[in-house]
Amino acid sequence: MPSRFLLPVLAITVCMVGAAEFMLAPMLAPLATAFHTSPMQASGLVSAYALSYAAAAPLMGWISDRAGRRGVLLAAMLLFAADSLALTLVPTLDAAMALRILGGLAAAATIPTVFALIADRIPPSRQAGAMGGVMLGMTAGIAAGPAVAGLLAEAWGWRAPFLVIAASCLAAFAAGWFVIPRDVSRAPVNPRPSADEKPAASAYRLLMAKGAWNGSAVAGYVFAGEVLRVRYALDVAAVGIAVSVFGMGLAIGNMLAGYASRRYAREQDLLVIATVVVAASMTLFLTVAIGLPAALGCLLTWGAALGIAAPASTALLAQRAGANKGKVLATSESVNNLSVLVLLPVAASASATYGGTPAAALLGGICLSGAILSATAVRQTV
């Protein structure tokens, strides 16, 4: 199978990861019934997956640097398929949560390995565009996963979405067997300190900055629906439609990432501009009582800028990481997830104590701080 199919196969792979992570949202009630528990307790399936993902990602990235991308990625696809299939057979919630931990391990191995593989195979000038195209697959999974899962569960029962994920992962494995190259470079087992130390240090500063701006942007998005409901008196259906504008923007940003990278020539400039736009549009949306059309424009801009910033930062991290691409990109995934887990309760507490505007301003300030830190980090290495 020609190498031109590599990026589409990787996009399908991360699409399944995105769908599997978010598809439980409409399924908590039928899952609670199936496992004889409450929807609140069934939500532990989401937490088990997310925490396993965040905790295991650095180790999985390190393994991919040493063992090679192909083996890790193919094994992760098989594990994901087996996990999804086994979930349809277990009788208890505890067993299902244990399996979701395995699913988190598979996701932790998949996402950073996919982007490290792109960095291994694609020239630096095209990496942001390639990563944006693959991230579009994840965006599609995140956006469509809950809706498709809800329809499947309604028509054929709660097992149907998991069976579809399992079949899709097996199909991706079969395609990946032919598409993923065998000659992927590996990191040295005992790398010595060298001139790569400066880029590596820059990579870790960049991933901390990404944790700030990406974590605050995602945490702010969680509050977007409530802002729309309260400020504009929208009903539930209207809020759902309005919030989907953010997802549209995210997809547009992913598609424009390659063009934007070529336009600005350097990911450093693109990353700084995009993160500042994220901070400005998010803060304006959350703190200022603008008209609904302007608010939707802010949501669209916020999503599009984030859709450009994410692949640009991933490409830049891969370039700075040297031989440790897998480890650095995996650590970035962990930092992003942990940032969201920390910032959500902090923002919620601030909102309950001081009101929504101060809480929103806090998130905007953290996002802008991350943008400034990104600018500082990239300037130190140019």
Rank of each mutant, 00 (worst) to 15 (best):
L316V: 14
L316M: 15
L317W: 09
L317K: 04
A318T: 10
A318M: 11
A318W: 08
Q319Y: 15
Q319K: 15
R320W: 13
R320L: 15
R320T: 15
G322W: 02
A323Y: 07
A323D: 07
N324M: 10
K325F: 03
K325M: 04
G326A: 06
G326C: 08
V328H: 02
V328A: 07
L329P: 14
A330D: 10
A330V: 02
A330T: 09
A330R: 03
T331C: 13
S332L: 09
S332R: 12
S332Y: 13
S332E: 03
E333P: 15
S334C: 13
V335F: 07
V335M: 05
N336C: 03
N337Q: 04
S339G: 07
S339I: 01
V340A: 00
V340N: 08
V342K: 10
V342E: 03
L344N: 04
L344Y: 01
P345Q: 00
P345M: 01
V346D: 01
A347L: 01
A348T: 02
A348D: 00
S349A: 06
S349E: 01
S349F: 04
S351C: 03
S351R: 04
S351F: 09
A352C: 04
T353E: 09
T353P: 10
T353I: 11
T353K: 09
Y354P: 14
Y354G: 12
G355Y: 01
G355K: 07
T357F: 09
T357W: 06
A359H: 05
A359K: 03
A359N: 01
A360Q: 08
A361Q: 10
A361E: 11
A361F: 11
L362Q: 03
L362W: 02
